[in-house]
Simulated assay, not measured.
Amino acid sequence: MRVVIAEDSVLLREGLTRLLTDRGLEVVAGVSDAVALLKTIDDLAAGDGLPDVVVADVRMPPTFTDEGVRACVTLRGLYPGLGVLVLSQYVEEQYAGELLAGSTRGVGYLLKDRVAEVREFVDAVKRVAEGGTALDPEVVQQLLSRSRKGDVLTGLTPREREVLGLMAEGRTNAAIAKQLVVSDGAVEKHVSNIFQKLGLGQSQQDHRRVLAVLTYLNS
């Protein structure tokens, strides 16, 4: 699994590199700004091949506003198969929304504090690299609070909202069952009810999960 890290802090960039390398991932490049990130990905695409995932800070030089997330949005447009995991100091709903617009496949948004939870962080990197979703629980909670002001999800029960929130974090049915201390069958029933109430008809299961999460995030 090949990774590119974009982080202006040398200490954090080197720390992420060591952390991921020690767990069997190959960090093929580390850059300090968005311009270098875009050039590096283009060069890799033309040479050794795209990495599996980019791990990037939201705020990067020169203005330290939104260069990192803008670069990631650009990369998702140019290279749809490239996983993108954005790290942020705190929840910024606008940036999360821009990153997730269109598809939640191969995308993640985590708070930097989550890096300290090494196993969860590495799992998130791998999940995004494999085309899954990894959203910080605090991001999901804020989006859930906002969604309560709308009408799209009013038909869901509190438990179904909870299940959908965990789906938005990128968790599988088995992981949701473990988190809620319920059976796999109970989670499958909740997921089925969510699909029905959101008007998502029969289709490929993974596709419906993405549509459900997008409905949730955009509500």
Rank of each mutant, 00 (worst) to 15 (best):
D52F: 05
V152N: 07
A168N: 06
L211D: 01
P158V: 14
L214F: 01
G131I: 14
Y90D: 06
K112D: 04
Q196H: 07
R171F: 13
C72W: 08
A46S: 11
G108L: 11
Q142L: 12
G131T: 08
H207C: 00
L164T: 02
A36C: 07
E160D: 02
S192A: 09
V115Y: 11
A101H: 13
A46D: 07
V53S: 01
L78Y: 08
F195V: 01
G68Q: 05
R70E: 12
L38E: 04
G15E: 11
Q204M: 06
V187K: 09
L143C: 10
T133G: 04
V3C: 01
S32K: 11
S88P: 01
T74R: 09
R70N: 06
E93Y: 09
T74P: 00
L100G: 04
L20E: 04
E98L: 15
M60Q: 02
E26H: 06
L110V: 11
A177F: 14
V182Y: 10
E14V: 14
V86T: 06
E188R: 15
V69E: 02
S32T: 12
E188M: 15
S88A: 05
V55G: 00
E169F: 05
T21V: 12
A177E: 13
Y109V: 07
T215H: 02
V163L: 02
P137A: 11
P61I: 13
D206M: 05
S147R: 08
V213T: 03
K178E: 15
P61C: 10
R105M: 03
L25A: 08
S192Y: 08
P62H: 14
E130G: 10
G185R: 13
L78W: 11
L37S: 04
D48T: 07
M1E: 08
V4Q: 01
R23P: 04
D42Y: 03
V128G: 04
Q141R: 09
Y95C: 09
I176M: 12
L44H: 01
Q179P: 10
L11V: 15
H207K: 06
L135Y: 10
R23W: 12
E120G: 09
Q196P: 03
A6M: 12
G131V: 15
S145M: 09
H190I: 13
Y109M: 08
V28I: 10
A177M: 15
L135T: 04
K178F: 12
Y79N: 06
R161K: 14
E93Q: 05
K126N: 08
K189R: 13
V58K: 01
T133Y: 04
Y109I: 08
G81F: 14
K197G: 02
A116K: 13
T17K: 12
M167N: 04
D151E: 12
R171P: 06
A101G: 09
A34S: 12
T104Q: 01
V86K: 02
R171T: 11
R18L: 15
G199R: 00
A212T: 00
G97H: 14
Y95G: 02
V69P: 01
G185H: 13
G97T: 14
E138N: 06
Y95P: 00
V125W: 00
V210K: 00
N218V: 07
L78Q: 14
T40R: 03
G165Q: 03
L153E: 03
V58N: 00
D136A: 13
S32Y: 10
G15C: 12
